[in-house]
Design a protein around this nucleic acid. Structure first.
Lengths: 353, 353
DNA sequence: CAATGTTGCTAAATCGTTTTAGCTTAACCT
DNA sequence: AGGTTAAGCTAAAACGATTTAGCAACATTG
């Protein structure tokens, strides 16, 4: 059997011809319908062996054309290069998807409504089997339209409350609440939140968690919102001004890791010592936070868990066409490092009074 | 014109029927062959307007089946979540590819030969139009086999010298040489290289650049190799031992950013001050290096340039079937920060002698 | 022995394009 | 008038799978 240099693709038709049987039979056997279609075991075995031998791989285009399924999942994130969370999720999803015979294409929305809508328009009717999306605000209609067509969707990182759609998010409210509680119990009194100017659920919940903890403790709240689309420098100066204007602040919670990075630069610029002058906690872990001096306390997302749930939801929806909607809320973990530890003595002192 | 809830897909056949013309004509017009095939301008215009009106999108599966082209490019990297370079390249490539009507699927090799081979086996004969690959060692055969089939390939980050294949890399030799020269001219005498235990071109060139600079200056070389697949902790202790065993070392060059991160931890563990006890330069920039105290000097890769060249090479190869092989070597940039600045006085002193 | 079932397989339609080969007209030339 | 050319379009064959409908041969039943 001479292996030609340029391997001519072998088709189901070639197999039929070679074995002297019809392509129907071959197709049935390949699709595991041998018993159902009453193909004899002998023939089944013969075909399967031959298929192995010639290393037959079905043409996905032909399969796709016939079945209407592309075996492609679209992963639509804010920016695969910006937020480590998305890259890590992408990595973990990839393997499982490949195991099930799915391939993943990706695209980035920059968290812009227009871009997301454009991308969805581009992809729909292009036989994408399912979508994993971190949705910007305002794309409810397009998502609903996909849902109406029965296309599986899993939202991730944030939810669209107007919609009834699978999603995997973390418990932003409680994890932020816990982080603020941690600061309070370490004796900090004037705790600021620096967050995104956004009404998306994940940000709204972090804000709510902050407000609840501050209110319950009878403390004053300090909230500063910055804009995702502004330049790094702009936002750093915004934070600098905010901290200068509110110089009683003795602790600050950054609601995303990139805001955390901006915040650290602002704090460095102001020559404030962490945690002596100002304590710090950031949402989302990052190498920088681990190895910064001092190391930075963070609320870490359970990335492997998130990924596992996302891909499982997607694959289940794809295979079983199960219309049940799953809303998965995972706990996040407060990783306490040096940047938030101080005034414990004061706390104990007060406690003893 | 009532828009139905579930948009029934409109096909080229529907268009022909609706307009009372043949699907051939529609196809010619849609593919811009109207003039060539002598379709009248009036009809061309009518068809194009109707196509707009009903928002017709050709079925990619059918197109793919007929033409043998999938309009899909595979991006095969080491680990999209690990090395920022890859995620950034992915991001930049994405947009340009979409503009040209291509979609990108990705997969990660973990820099393992077996995994890469398996993935290539999986994808080939699956009508992937082109491959952008950061190749592990030892996959020359599979790449050659793709090349033999005339499939466009662009290698990135490193080359496979045994093959004659498009690639986009940076000038590892000269950029490393320049970084070591910088250390030398800042008066450092015992400069170590900590690099990967790998014969891949990018690592070999970095090593060669180091050796050349050290030899030309008549200095002693200190080289430590660590293993990509070992755990973080293992490699950190390796580095710690190496620095302890060679305590005359006063500067160190890390040949990748993750080795740099390990190195910083080792240095922190040894309580060495940067740059007073030991100067530091790392390959590849990273938030951590920018904002570390002190900030870390790096050899930064020109990520946008790399991406631009990669996608242009790929698209050119896809569209024109141009068999010319392009080898693109881009300069990297030494970004001097605090971690490598010291002993300038000594240098000046010597210079004056 | 006729009717009915069962076993084991296959012919042919279909999915939505692209593309080759050609078919009508009408115009032009000599 | 007969022959050639050109303009403007189309029929039908792929591409490679899946799937519906059904055929032939044999076995079973009453």
């Amino acid at each position: 059997m001479p292996a030609s240099k340029v391997s001519k693709k072998v088709s189901i038709r070639d197999i039929g011809k070679e074995l002297g049987i019809s392509i129907t039979t071959v197709s049935f056997i390949l699709n595991g319908k041998a018993k159902e279609k009453r193909i004899s075991e002998a023939l089944t075995k013969k075909v399967l062996e031959f298929v192995k031998e010639v290393n037959f791989k079905p043409n996905m285009m032909a399969q796709g054309l016939r079945t209407g399924k592309s075996k492609i999942i679209c992963l639509m994130v804010e920016d695969i290069s910006n937020n480590l969370l998305f890259a890590q999720v992408a990595r973990l999803i990839e393997e499982e998807a490949h195991n099930k015979g799915y391939r993943i294409i990706y695209c980035s929305t920059d968290n812009k409504k227009e871009k997301a809508i454009e991308l969805i328009q581009l992809f729909r009717d292009r036989s994408i089997d399912g979508y994993i999306i971190t949705p910007p605000e305002g794309i409810e209609q397009e998502i609903q339209s996909l849902l109406n067509d029965g296309i599986p969707i899993v939202l991730i990182d944030r939810n669209l409350p107007l919609l009834s759609c699978n999603h995997v998010v973390i418990d932003n409210f409680n994890s932020t609440h816990e982080a603020i509680r941690h600061l309070i119990s370490n004796g900090f009194k004037n705790i600021a939140l620096i967050t995104l100017n956004s009404d998306q659920t994940q940000m709204a919940d972090r804000l709510a968690g902050y407000v609840k903890a501050i209110d319950d403790a009878g403390l004053q709240s300090y909230v500063k919102k910055v804009d995702f689309h502004e330049s790094d420098d702009h936002n750093i100066s915004e934070i600098i001004s905010f901290l200068q204007d509110n110089n009683t602040i003795d602790a600050v919670f950054f609601s995303t890791n990139y805001i955390g990075v901006w915040g650290l630069q602002a704090i460095k610029h102001l020559n404030l010592r962490i945690p002596d002058d100002i304590a710090v906690i950031s949402f989302d872990d990052h190498d920088l936070f681990k190895f910064y001096t001092p190391s930075i306390t963070v609320v870490a997302q359970p990335v492997p868990d998130i990924s596992r749930h996302v891909i499982r939801l997607m694959l289940d929806a794809l295979e079983e066409a199960d219309p049940t909607i799953h809303e998965i809320i995972l706990p996040a973990k407060l990783i306490i490092r040096e940047s938030s530890m101080r005034k414990v003595v004061v706390e104990k002192h007060e406690f003893l009074k």
